[in-house]
């Protein structure tokens, strides 16, 4: 097993850790961060496995994908943060309303 798999496993771990945080934390900022952690986990899996063939140059395609993914994640994060500020401005709390809206 090459070290690439180790990184991939770390990526999986980040993914689930992010998921845990996404679920249990109420504050929206934490949720947004958790999403980002999850995204990092996925990217890590993608990139790490690209280099798993020992002795060969890493596969460039996943790298390109990750760059694309990062930009998407950045965009989404920006939007999420702006939205979070709106939520706080409208409801006074940076948390999700847990009761269904009436």
């Amino acid at each position: 097993m090459s070290p690439a798999f180790l990184y991939a496993l770390v990526g999986v771990g980040l993914f689930t850790l992010g998921l845990y945080a996404l679920i249990v934390h109420a504050h929206l900022l934490r949720k947004i961060l958790a999403i980002n952690v999850m995204a990092s986990g996925v990217f890590l899996v993608l990139v790490a496995l690209a280099a798993r063939t020992q002795g060969a140059a890493p596969d460039p395609v996943p790298h390109a994908m990750v760059i694309t993914g990062i930009v998407v994640a950045v965009s989404a994060t920006a939007l999420a943060l702006a939205l979070m500020l709106r939520v706080r401005a409208e409801t006074g709390r940076a948390e999700l309303a847990e009761e269904p809206l009436e």
Binding site: L22, A39, V42, A80, V87, L96, L101
Partner: peptide, 25 residues
């Protein structure tokens, strides 16, 4: 605009991102 819409949108955004990440993995 308004609390309902913004909260709804926030929730929707999180869900959407979560779903996409699962898909991406």
């Amino acid at each position: 605009g308004g609390a309902d819409a913004v909260s709804g949108a926030m929730r929707y955004l999180l869900v959407s991102l979560l779903g996409s990440l699962f898909y991406l993995l």
